[in-house]
Structures are given as C-alpha cells and as structure tokens.
Simulated scan of single mutants.
Amino acid sequence: MASRLFVSYLRPVIQIQRCGLVTVEKVNNRDVVGYGYNGEPTYLDRVDFPYPAIRWKENTADIMALREKEKGDWKKLSIDEKKILYRASFRQTFSEMNASTGKWKGILGMFLLVPSAAIWLFLYFKEFSNPPLPETFSMERRLAQLDRMKKLDMNPIDGLCARK
C-alpha cells in the first residue's frame, strides 16, 4: 500500500517529456477537461485519441473573456475568435497532425549511407589491399596458353559427342 502510494506520488516526476507531451508539473493555469490518454493529465496530439486531458495554452484574460463569450450565441463570434479558442485548446488540427514531416528523406538517406559505404570499402579493398595479379592473367598470356594446350592435345574430348 505504501509503495503504491509512493509510486503514484512520484508519477508526475518520473514521466518523460517528449515532443507535444506536457507532464503534470506543467499544468499550472490550464483547465483539466477530460480523462486523457491512460487517465493521466497530459497534453498529447494523437489522431487515434483526439481529446487530451488538459488544454494546450494557459488561461489568460483574453482567452477567459472569449470563453465567456463562447457560452452565448456562437454566431456572434468572429472566425478569428473561433480560431483563437481552438488554438487555446488544441496545438494542431487533424490536417497538421497528418501532414508529411519529411522524415522519410532523412531515414532513406541514412539507409542509403550503409550501401554506399559498403561499395566504397569494396572498391578500396579491391584496389589497394590485394596484391597485383600475376603476368599469366593477361589476355595475351591466356591466349598463348590455350594455343599451347591445343598443340599438345591436352585433355582431348572423346566419345560420341566429340565425333562429327
């Protein structure tokens, strides 16, 4: 019991702050508006869980005035006021969350770095680490060796297949 109480007391301190994730220590002057993801009072933009537990921005006098005006007729609010209210509650829209970040370019570049390094290492070792080939590997020497093998009749092919 005591250990569970101790862990629940330390939970806000233990949480890691990631991009877009705000821990309990940072709640300050924000409204807690729901249960949140996993029941923790954090803000996190997620497409699969669109209702964070706390609002994105802290309550200021301007925002509180707009919230009072919001309780009345919404037709009296201008488009800019609606946008300010939305941005006070949420950091991103769904289209901003789903927008491409361009991370795939960096991942592809890092992935292609490995084959590129492998090719350069192969070329380096092929050029500098192997000893030079003997003279007998030149084309004229190999042709001369083939001609000599024919003249000495080395390894003749016999049997039915060799007959014309």
Results as ranks from 00 to 15, higher is better:
G109P: 06
I84W: 09
I63F: 14
G72M: 10
K71A: 03
K26H: 04
L121D: 11
G159P: 01
T60N: 09
T23N: 15
N29D: 00
L5E: 03
Y124I: 06
T136I: 06
K26G: 07
D48L: 06
A53M: 07
K71Y: 05
V27R: 05
G20W: 11
F122Q: 14
G39C: 05
N38Q: 04
I157P: 08
R4W: 01
N59C: 08
M149T: 11
R141G: 02
R4D: 02
E127G: 15
V114Q: 07
K126Y: 10
Y51G: 05
C161L: 14
K105Q: 12
L77R: 05
I84C: 03
R55I: 05
P156S: 12
Y51D: 05
R30K: 06
D147N: 10
D153S: 12
Y9L: 12
Q145H: 02
F6S: 03
N98E: 15
K69C: 09
G36A: 08
D45G: 08
K105F: 13
I107A: 07
Q145G: 04
L121H: 01
A2T: 14
W120D: 07
A2W: 00
M64H: 03
P134E: 01
L85V: 01
T93C: 08
N29M: 11
G36P: 11
M139G: 00
S8Y: 05
G39V: 12
P131E: 15
E140C: 04
Q92V: 15
Y37R: 13
K164T: 01
S100H: 06
P132Q: 00
M154L: 15
V47I: 06
V7H: 01
K69D: 01
F94G: 08
M154D: 12
L146G: 02
P50G: 03
N38V: 00
T42H: 12
F49I: 10
L152I: 09
K105W: 12
I84T: 15
P50C: 02
L66W: 03
E40G: 02
V32H: 08
